Each structure stands twice: as C-alpha cells, then as structure tokens.
Amino acid sequence: MLQLFFAVAFSAVPLTLYIPPIRSLNLFVETIEDLLRQMAVHTVRTYPRIRFGFSRILNNLLHLAR
C-alpha cells in the first residue's frame, strides 16, 4: 500500500509544474476577459460588412450559374 501511495504521489508531482499559481491565474483570466471585450467591439462593427460582402459574392455566383 505504501508503494502505491509513493507511485501516485511521485507521478502527480510533475503535473503541479503545469498548473499556474492562483495569483497568476487571476491575471490570466483578467487578460482574457479584456481581450474578449476588445474583440466584441470590433466584431459588432465588422459583422454587417462581412455579411453584406458575402451576400454580394453569393449573388454574383448565382447570377453567373444561370
């Protein structure tokens, strides 16, 4: 039983290197939220233009197919 405990303990130790500390995780989450907020502003502004351009391309393709 002691061998199993040590095997599990020593196999889990390298995983702690990949998990950031909580203080770093908060900064990461804050940065991601800020990035998403900035992207939302640009997405709302460019989405109608992309949709309009895509519809014009489809209309041209459909008229050429006739």
Rank of each mutant, 00 (worst) to 15 (best):
L27S: 10
M1C: 09
L2V: 11
T31E: 12
L17T: 10
L2R: 10
Q38G: 09
A7R: 14
L35C: 08
M39S: 03
R51A: 15
E33S: 09
A40D: 09
T31H: 06
S55E: 14
S24T: 05
Q38A: 14
I19F: 04
V41N: 00
A12L: 15
L64G: 05
I32N: 00
F28Y: 08
L25I: 10
P14K: 06
F10A: 01
P14D: 04
Y47A: 15
L17D: 02
P20E: 01
S11R: 05
F54C: 12
P20I: 04
R45L: 12
L62D: 04
R23S: 14
Y18D: 01
H63F: 02
H63I: 14
M1N: 07
R23V: 05
R23H: 08
Q38V: 11
V44E: 15
I50D: 07
N59L: 06
R37M: 08
P20L: 08
L27R: 15
Q38K: 15
L61A: 14
F54R: 06
T31R: 08
S11W: 02
L64I: 11
F10Y: 03
N59P: 00
M39F: 09
F6V: 07
L35M: 13
P20T: 03
Q38F: 08
I32C: 00
N26W: 06
G53M: 02
V29L: 12
A9K: 11
H63Y: 01
P48N: 01
P20S: 07
D34R: 12
L61D: 06
R45V: 14
L25T: 08
I22S: 07
L25W: 12
V8G: 06
N60M: 05
F6G: 01
T31K: 07
A7W: 06
N26C: 07
P48L: 02
F5L: 14
D34P: 00
N59R: 13
Y47I: 11
I22N: 03
F28H: 06
P14W: 02
R45W: 08
S11F: 04
L61F: 13
R45I: 15
I50K: 04
S11V: 06
R51L: 12
Q3P: 05
L58S: 08
E33V: 10
N59W: 07
